[in-house]
Nucleic acid binder design. Structure first.
Length: 284
DNA sequence: CTAGGATCCTGTCAGC
DNA sequence: TGCTGACAGGATCCTA
């Protein structure tokens, strides 16, 4: 679930709450969720946080780093004098921890950091700091939307010309950080039907799509990511920031904010996909 | 090389 | 109530 804006939100929060603290103890409750020797982490201080696409890097003293990928259902929940939680939105944000979905626990000096992950697709991986950039996933990441040159992206679209454009922008080797929410939102911004073959986008279409990705992601980061724990709606019920800015994602059956026609949910590249059939045109 | 589908795992929800 | 299948904010692996 968590995409670039959510991971950026986590990074900023943890930098605020956890940096410069020593890791007193690590508990691995699910072997699959922790790659590498967990003993080497103990006793080291958190030096800082980095983010590459959807991957979070925790740099520790002793030239050791952690790479954390939340995949579909990962969450990082800081429990100190206050709670700070982000990632896949769920009751875990406010629940008693650890619980059934807790996979790794980091005891720090002023609180505890929980890595929760319902589906166990995510992981924490230990590696020497100098090898972070050599990690296969990190090394193959394309530039993020703000650094993407439309000309380069256009080239990649030509190479993948027969795939639906949505499938192509979900590929982290093509453009980094986009997931199912922001793919739908960026395509809506650009007025492009997600089923359009990538080869049918012009350079102008490509520019518009990059612009859309930048705008929707910046807006999300500015509002704290789409999945903060703290958002309470006016009526007192819980919500997430998603509903503050999403124009199509999870809005099937509701009117399009531009034209009033009904937002539809379809299936593209094996993923649930939300479109306005009137505002988004299939390019041929 | 590309394109498409299966797969990892747990949980929830709709339909019968 | 219980069962079944579909689906889920990701990425990789396998096959053609």
């Amino acid at each position: 679930m968590p995409e670039l804006p959510e991971v950026e939100t986590i990074k900023r929060g943890l930098n605020n709450f956890c940096v410069h603290q020593k890791i007193k103890k690590v508990m691995v409750l699910c072997d699959k969720s922790f790659v590498g020797p967990c003993e080497v982490v103990k006793g080291h201080e958190i030096v800082g946080f980095r983010r590459y696409g959807k991957a979070l890097i925790v740099d520790l003293s002793g030239a050791v780093s952690l790479m954390i990928h939340l995949r579909m259902t990962g969450q990082l929940i800081w429990d100190g004098t206050e709670r700070y939680a982000a990632g896949h939105p769920s009751d875990n944000f406010t629940a008693e921890l650890p619980n059934k979905q807790t996979r790794v626990v980091f005891e720090l000096e002023n609180g505890t950091l929980y890595f929760n992950d319902q589906r166990k697709f995510g992981f924490v991986k230990v590696l020497p700091t100098e090898e972070v950039l050599k990690d296969k996933f990190i090394a193959s990441l394309a530039p993020e939307p703000w650094q993407t040159k439309p000309e380069d992206l256009y080239e990649k679209f030509q190479r993948r010309k027969n795939s639906p454009i949505k499938a192509v922008i979900l590929d982290q080797k093509v453009i980094a950080g986009i997931g199912n929410i922001y793919a739908d939102e960026a395509l809506f911004y650009a007025g492009i039907d997600p089923r359009t073959r990538a080869g049918n986008l012009s350079l102008k279409d490509t520019k518009k799509l990059v612009e859309g990705a930048c705008k929707v992601m910046s807006a999300s980061i500015d509002s704290g990511g789409s999945t903060m724990a703290t958002y309470v709606k006016a009526d007192g019920t819980k919500g997430d920031y998603l509903e503050l800015f999403a124009k199509v994602f999870r809005r099937e059956g509701q009117p399009c904010t531009k034209c009033g026609r009904e937002i539809q949910k379809i299936r593209v590249a094996g993923r649930g996909t939300h479109i306005c059939p009137h505002c988004q045109k299939e390019l041929v």
